[in-house]
Every structure is written in C-alpha cells, then in structure tokens.
Design a protein around this nucleic acid. Sequence first.
DNA 1: ATCGCGTATTATGCATACAAACCAATTTCT
DNA 2: AGAAATTGGTTTGTATGCATAATACGCGAT
Lengths: 236, 236
Amino acid sequence: MEQTLETPDVRGPAEAAAEPRLLASEVIERLRDMIVQGELAPGTKLNERVLCERLRHSRTPVREAIKYLASEGLVELVPNRGAIVTPITAVAVREMFVVMGALEGLAGELACANASDADIAEIRALHYQMLVHHARGELAEYFRYNQQIHLRLVECTGNVTLANTYRALNGHVRRARYMANLSRERWDAAVAEHEEILNALMRRDSVKLQALLRNHLGNKMVVVMEALSKQSTEIM
Amino acid sequence: MEQTLETPDVRGPAEAAAEPRLLASEVIERLRDMIVQGELAPGTKLNERVLCERLRHSRTPVREAIKYLASEGLVELVPNRGAIVTPITAVAVREMFVVMGALEGLAGELACANASDADIAEIRALHYQMLVHHARGELAEYFRYNQQIHLRLVECTGNVTLANTYRALNGHVRRARYMANLSRERWDAAVAEHEEILNALMRRDSVKLQALLRNHLGNKMVVVMEALSKQSTEIM
DNA sequence: ATCGCGTATTATGCATACAAACCAATTTCT
DNA sequence: AGAAATTGGTTTGTATGCATAATACGCGAT
C-alpha cells in the first residue's frame, strides 16, 4: 500500500521489528496457542493493553479473539473486569477425560466402520514415527505424534462434529502439562497400548478397539491427575 | 462451552416498557436466541448495521457477539465478507445426533450413579408437567418440557463439561424445526418412551436407561431427518 | 438482450476516542 | 487507630472514524 503525503501511514501500534503483522483471524489462533502451550498460565489475567503489544494489533481484534476463546472455554469473561485464562482444576480435567472417553469410544466404533485403508495407513505411519521418538527418548516429539494419532483417529471417522468436539476438549486437557511426569515404565506401557490399538484398528475390530481406547485413556487420566495433584492442588 | 457470563441484570424499574437497552453480555444471549429460535434463518447473512439496529448497540459489541457464536458454531465467519448463520445440512445434523447419542448414553450411566433423589424427583415433576401438555395437545409446551427433561438429565450427572457440550449440540439441532412434523403416533410413542426412561432412572438401572435413551434418540433422529428432507433438501 | 468491464456504493476490518467501572492509596471522620 | 470516603490512575466497555475489500450498478460492445 503506497502512502501519500497526506496519509502518514497510521497503522497500528508498533510494527517496529520485522515480526510480520498477523492476519486478523490469526490473532485467535495465536492467542489460543499462547494459552494451550502454557505461555499464558491458567488463571492469568488477560490485560488487553499487554496482549495488544504482544500480538501487534489494536484492542478490537484482540477483544474479538478473547470472546471467541471464551466460547471455547479457554478463557473466562468476568463482567467489567476483563478475562482470565481458565484455571485448571482437577475436577474439570477429570470431567473432560470422562467425556473424551465416551467420544473416543464412539470414534473407535466409527473408525472401524468408516475409515479408508489410506486413513489407517497414515495412522500406521504416524505410529512408527512415534516409535522412533520413543526409542530416542524424545518425549516432546513422541508426544506430538501421540496427539496426532489420537486426532487422526477421531478425524477418520468422517464425523466432523465429533472431531471438533474432541479437539476442543483435548486442547483444554493439554494445558495440564503432565508430559514431564511420564515415568519410563508408564511411557513404555503407553507405547505397548498404542501397538495394540493400531492392531485392533487394522483388523477393524470395533469391540476390542473400544476397550483398548477406554483403558488407554483411563491410564492417561491417572498420569494427568497425579501430575495435577503434585502441582498446586488448587487452581493452577 | 463453559462461560462465566453471569449477568447481574440490575435494571432499574424504569426501563420495563421502552425496549430496555441490552446489557452487553446479553447481546450474545439475544443473538443466540434469534438464531436458535429461527428468527434468523440458517444461511442468512448477518449484516452488522442491521443487527446493530435490532440489538440497539454499536458494532463493537455486536461483532464480539458474532465471534463468540462463531466459536460455538452457530455462525460461520467468512473472511472479508462477514458472517452467516450456519446452514443446516442433513449431514451435520446426523453427525450431531450420533455424538449426542454417545453423550446421552454417558449421561444415563452417570445419572444413575450420581443423581440425588431430589434431582430425580425434579425430573419426575417435569415429566408429569410434560404429560399435561401432551394430553392437551399443546405441542410447543410439550416440547419445552421435553427439552428440559433431557437437559436436566445431563445436568444431574454432576459433570458440567458433559452438560455444556450436550447443550451446545442441542442448540444446533433445535434449529431444525422438526417439531411441527411430529405425527400423533410418533408423539404418543415418544411419551411412552419417556415413561420408560423415567422408570429406569428411578430404579437407577444404568444399562436399561442407556438402551432406552439410545433408542429414543434414534427415533428422534428419524423424525428430524424426515423433516429435513421435506424442507429444502439443500442447505436450509 | 447478454456479457464485460469500470466505477460508485456499501460493508467489513481495524484503530482510536470517549465514557464508565474498578483499584489503590491517601485522607478524613469517628 | 480504624473505618469510611475521596481521588488519581488504570482498565474495561462502547461508539465512531477511516481504509480496504466486496458488491452492485450502469454503460458500451458484441
């Protein structure tokens, strides 16, 4: 955009550094990431002015992003007092696991019925990639592929609503950074469970798959709840 | 999902008559109602200027409400082109019913385990109130109590996440105004099913309750899908 | 009459200005 | 001294202005 003499290019705050300006809708994505990644800890008050600086936008799009994420449950709106990052409570996390259990069970059933061979092949590929990182002891990378597998499983059901609902809950739970608390034994066991899950999926054994998924998620919940209780017992 | 929008609603006695100005957070509620009630039909373009007039607010809070509801899935954001009320497609509705089926099943299980006797008593009261309207042939009133019962069931599980997730999906599905298409036979059958559901809940018979709920929801889906296909086959 | 194309109008996206609510610290009154 | 009130500064909530992208319109050509 070429600026004339009269318009001294009144663009938003800063743009001092390179840091390319975010597209509007990217403000939502970026803010969500900041929350899910833990860059903004649970309970943190969202000061609009500060956020504007970090996201390099004016208040209007930032406030809109906050509203969007409030609906998603990642932030809580407090009338006349702005918003805070939704605190993580043990109760809420347990609730989410229970709901995710029902959704994963459904996903297993639908995946056996509807997934294409290509879908399953891709999950298989992700599985082996995950094994690579397990072998190397790369927890963060392992975790990323682990997440991918679970997401692909719900996606390949063909039920978009199911996938979206699952993804939203998963985003919440991920904020509890239980990853670090994974013992070697539990890690190895989780990998073994994934091996079985993959096999059941490849055989399209719906009943078995559902049982495995339920068990796997139950174990995961135990790890998370332990991690939560070791951190502050209260609101995080 | 879980919003902390507590609106104090401290309006003076003065503004009873003259179309009281909406509190800010009420803009969201009002707009949601307009969509769920069908006042804004699926597919409708949301013109900000027009909405501002109807909601008696400036663009900023209205836009924030739109973003909030976009996250809920009730409106779709189209970059540089504003927003439209999310169209209802047969595919999406069927997907939602499948997910709601899993959630209601879970709710039945949890309700049998966790509901207080008072919770069950209240559902029972709602049930009889529903019967009153069925006897009188008052479909709209019947339907309201019907909804209440299903909502109370998921609420009395004690799992807030479950209730919120269910409520969101339910709001979407309600936009398909299948109510009018309920035949007398189906109506009577639905009431009979509710009778059985109530009995299973009172006996806290988890297995039976889950089966009944699943069956009931399946029948409901058939009605809705028929209604959908009778309306425009395409996007509504 | 229909299709293309350039211009006018409108709507959206973003930034900012203004008003009301909130918070904190000091001051005043009991 | 302690409680209540006051006041300055900060933050949120709402309204409005400006720039750009999208749409609608009208004219000319085929």
